[in-house]
Design a protein around this nucleic acid. Structure first.
Lengths: 342, 342
DNA sequence: CTCCCGAATGAAAACGCTTACATCTTATAC
DNA sequence: GTATAAGATGTAAGCGTTTTCATTCGGGAG
């Protein structure tokens, strides 16, 4: 592989000059610029960004940490991150935690070894040691989806408690009195926990009792969402409405209900969270809490670059709360007077 | 930031020793290993993988080039790639081409500058200069989704012509005589073109005329899929069945038909391609040609690592054709005898 | 108690770039 | 034609690792 040296020799200039035509073409005579360019062509020179990174201590790379790229809500925000980053000439390294905190820890540390300049992090424990370690080291990062109470943690995302309330409130407004919940295990996802907080708060606000049997915690797959329905339906008084903490679970649940012959929304109402693009196409179209994922990724990256430039930074000024929105579709209906008994 | 040097000084050993405890712990006394480890802790040492990359000429990073991470078919294969790569201790840099060849070219070249060791490439022109440049330079890569005729281009994916035939044949088998097609612009995606080839071949095989008005080329969005319906329906003899070259377009088309009051599948049948996970949830569930995307990504990476180890390599031995599968759901129905007139 | 050999360690060059500083050109003003 | 300043170019020292080769160490055989 040809290096800057080979090019320099071939063009009869010094390496500094070659470097200059690459980085500051203005600081070089048109004639030598041309000479060097020709030499580069001639020996098939490929710039080595690693060496640049070592030398300048700027890798021009950022890391993205998300639970699973396969979930459209995350691929959407990832795209927002990528688009902003690439506009700035940066690349992204993408990793999946699968909601596993140990994996998250390991991956964050590997990313730092790779010398990413900053992180857009969707952490599953926003008050955990990962976030605190980053802060302690003054490492630039911005949180998405999950918010940390730490004043130095930049964040862009939605208010999950409020989102959880919106969904629950809506279901209660439809006269449902037994509203269940299918959630990601709280130990896996803080967002899930927050949404549950909102759920509880709505219940209380409306004078409804909280019944722990009505909330099932599970893992992130369609199948688990489907399975959750089973346990919900074996209850003496099964729910007439179910709030799911993400759309994937909601789709699974819908499938589960259909399979045991429950009509949606006539016999059971389902609400999701995220409002991924596909939710409007499913049958029936899913009522869901919309999160502006692309914007979230974009803005998070915007902030990250601000942190990168201003050093040391004032993260506290960087907390953006975007609005969730309840998108009403046909998966929910008012509770029928005559309760369907099974 | 502490370097290997600081650690060495603190532990009273040479940098070589520190490097050894990192890379070959076996080649070092237990006592010094411990000494060095403590020193690392003490000064908060973070390994610099960039420097390692420069020194060893192995970045332990591969590049993924896809049209759009937001399309589940690509996030699925991306996950396959990531899982295999991370098992090998590699990271991935992910870029989106948006089906733009110029962008693809630029990104591939940037990726090479970043010193990725290899590429998993979904190219939009498999016989274009990008692939040929890679081959000429002996740069390791494997193609996914789109197959190149070049004997040195490794590939894992499906036979798109055959896939296109399967879908079309199925529609024809349902007695449809006017089957339309909504495709990504052929200039954007070779896959789209291949599937169209299959479409034509089926037509011919079944003695049906090819009517260019029946195929509309468009861009990759739900909306464009929807729009395509309009132009199809203004035809004197609109199609009674439509084959879409991907599920996103198919969903858009379904929406388009519904909006003008056409019932699916009674009045018009729709078949897609990719069989993304969501297609089974939509209304009506979409008949589609299944591609094993995760496996595709996984196997492609497997091959890539083989290429990386065996050098120079024999790509010709590395072409894996996975089977597509027609997944029949409820979006298609036999043509009614009495033709619905509009 | 030596001697010798293998294992553990250290010294230093190399990886390909950037950049501060020094040096050399050139054009301008007189 | 010369002095001078501005601009172009060159020199060389890093950046943080790995790795080859040389050196030192420790322990078993004699």
């Amino acid at each position: 592989m040809a290096t800057i040296f080979d090019v320099a020799r071939r063009a009869n200039v010094s390496v500094a000059t070659v470097s200059r035509v690459i980085n500051h073409p203005g600081k070089v005579t048109e004639r030598t610029r041309r000479k060097v360019s020709t030499a580069m062509e001639a020996c098939g020179y490929v710039y080595n960004a690693l060496a640049m990174g070592l030398s300048t201590k700027r890798s021009r790379t950022i890391g993205i940490v998300i639970p699973n790229i396969t979930n459209p809500i995350f691929s959407e925000s990832t795209r927002g991150i990528q688009d902003y980053a690439s506009e700035k000439g940066y690349h992204v390294i993408l990793v999946n935690t699968d909601y596993l905190y140990e994996k998250e820890k390991k991956l964050v540390s590997l990313l730092r070894e790779k010398q990413v300049e900053g992180l857009v992090l969707t952490t599953n424990k926003p008050e955990g040691e990962i976030v605190h370690g980053l802060i302690k080291d003054g490492f630039p990062f911005v949180l998405t989806y999950s918010h940390s109470k730490h004043p130095m943690a930049a964040f862009v995302g939605v208010n999950n408690i409020q989102g959880g309330m919106r969904a629950t409130e809506f279901l209660i407004g439809l006269k449902h009195r037994r509203v269940g919940m299918i959630a990601l295990d709280f130990s896996l996802s803080d967002r899930s926990y927050q949404r549950w907080l909102g759920y509880r708060r709505s219940l209380k606000k409306n004078g409804l009792p909280y019944d722990p049997d009505l909330v099932v915690q599970t893992e992130y797959t369609f199948e688990k969402g489907k399975k959750a329905v089973e346990s919900l339906m074996t209850l003496p008084y099964p729910p007439t409405a179910v709030f799911c903490t993400n759309d994937i679970l909601a789709l699974g649940a819908m499938k589960g209900f259909k399979e045991i012959g429950k009509k949606i929304p006539e016999e059971v109402s389902i609400a999701g969270f995220d409002d991924i693009a596909f939710s409007k196409f499913v049958a029936p179209p899913l009522t869901s809490i919309h999160q502006p994922a692309y914007t979230m990724g974009w803005k998070a990256t915007e902030i990250l670059f601000e942190l990168l430039s201003k050093f040391p930074f004032q993260a506290s000024r960087h907390r953006i709360l975007l609005e969730t929105e309840l998108v009403v579709r046909q998966s929910c209906a008012p509770l029928l007077k005559k309760k369907v008994k099974r």
